[in-house]
């Protein structure tokens, strides 16, 4: 059985998404949640580019353009999330969200 490269990378994208989603829910530290969001986003990008890889004679440029803008947007989201996390920390003194305070211990 031969594994098509696009299938391998698309499944890897699903895997990255799942790893990121688990960490996003299960870990409490806000910086880890931000890292998890980035990993999830990369998984989605990998899936889109793997899908675009199937077409001939060149890879489909439209999903590639979407991912290109998506990468820049995800960096901006990271910057904004870091500013929000900083605000949470200056306000509460902790780097976790409020409802994790009771159950997290």
């Amino acid at each position: 059985m031969t594994l098509e490269p696009y299938l391998l990378y698309a499944l890897a994208g699903v895997g990255l998404f799942a790893i990121g989603l688990y960490a996003l829910i299960a870990r409490t530290h806000l910086l880890r949640k931000i890292l998890a969001l980035n990993v999830m986003g990369t998984g989605v990008f990998l899936f889109l580019i793997a899908i675009a890889y199937r077409s001939e004679p060149v890879a489909d440029p439209v999903p590639q353009a979407m991912v290109l803008t998506g990468i820049v947007v995800s960096v901006c989201a990271t910057g904004l999330a870091l500013a929000l996390a900083h605000r949470v920390q200056t306000t509460t003194g902790r780097m976790v969200l409020a409802e994790n305070d009771e159950s997290g211990a």
Binding site: L7, A10, L11, V14, F47, I51, R54, S55, D60, V62
Partner: peptide, 18 residues
């Protein structure tokens, strides 16, 4: 579920490349 959906995609699709 997502993996199953990915596997059921056709192996070739020209998409919008052409």
């Amino acid at each position: 579920a997502l993996g199953w959906a990915v596997c059921s995609l056709p192996a070739y699709s020209s998409g919008l490349a052409v």
